[in-house]
Design a protein around this nucleic acid. Structure first.
Lengths: 115, 115
DNA sequence: CAGTATCCCGGCCGATACTG
DNA sequence: CAGTATCGGCCGGGATACTG
């Protein structure tokens, strides 16, 4: 990590973390990145263990950061669709790398614990 | 995010997060990655706002995951040195990307709020 | 110098019930 | 269908004091 000061890096890293940290945020993002636009109910079904309240709050927070877009169709019954913004797609590489390193780490720790 | 299932990615991403999430972990890692081996007191001085207890616990957790190494010199007064393991260096790319995306995000949000 | 030991608070998150 | 409202528990993290 040459020619980069920790004090400088820190803020960027923490800003990124603030976005993806949240019990359900990574998996919500992965679903939207992978499957495209989804309705509230679809997401709810894809995440069987999440409560409606948590799904709502996590989505609202991601929306506030402009990582996802919320589109409301004025129909009855209501329809609301969520999708990742162009801007939010920039998180793809980070999530991808975290995925790869994380899997390797899980295997490393598993092997270690089996010794 | 083609040909990768969210359910599969999820675990890797969360495993990575479990390591770098912690109020002081990113900056501790950045300091050790950037400045190499450091003593407990050096780190404490570099992070003026951290309490001794927090520094200890964050270091212990990173050590448990084998991201950093703790070396104790049997001297009086005691000397303890911390360094990033070869294995832990694999986090470099992730932190680097989070830094870049995060800085861009901060600027994006700053510009937005100034409109 | 490099830690422990206690005490304590705020906020994330879950359970549950209600609604336009 | 897609949300709010309310209550409550857990635990990450801080303040402070003590120690081999």
């Amino acid at each position: 990590m040459d020619n980069i000061k920790p004090e400088t890096c820190r803020y960027g890293v923490e800003a990124s973390l603030e976005i993806i940290v949240g019990k359900w945020k990574p998996i919500i993002l992965l679903h939207l990145l992978h499957g495209g636009t989804k309705r509230f109910g679809e997401l709810k079904r894809m995440l069987p263990d999440i409560t409606q309240k948590m799904l709502t709050t996590q989505l609202r927070e991601l929306e506030e950061q402009e990582i996802i877009m919320r589109k409301v169709y004025p129909e009855v019954p209501p329809r609301v669709e969520y999708s990742v913004t162009e801007y939010g797609r920039g998180l793809y590489d980070i999530l991808q790398q975290m995925h790869e390193w994380g899997i390797a780490h899980l295997e490393y720790m598993a092997k270690k614990n089996s010794r």
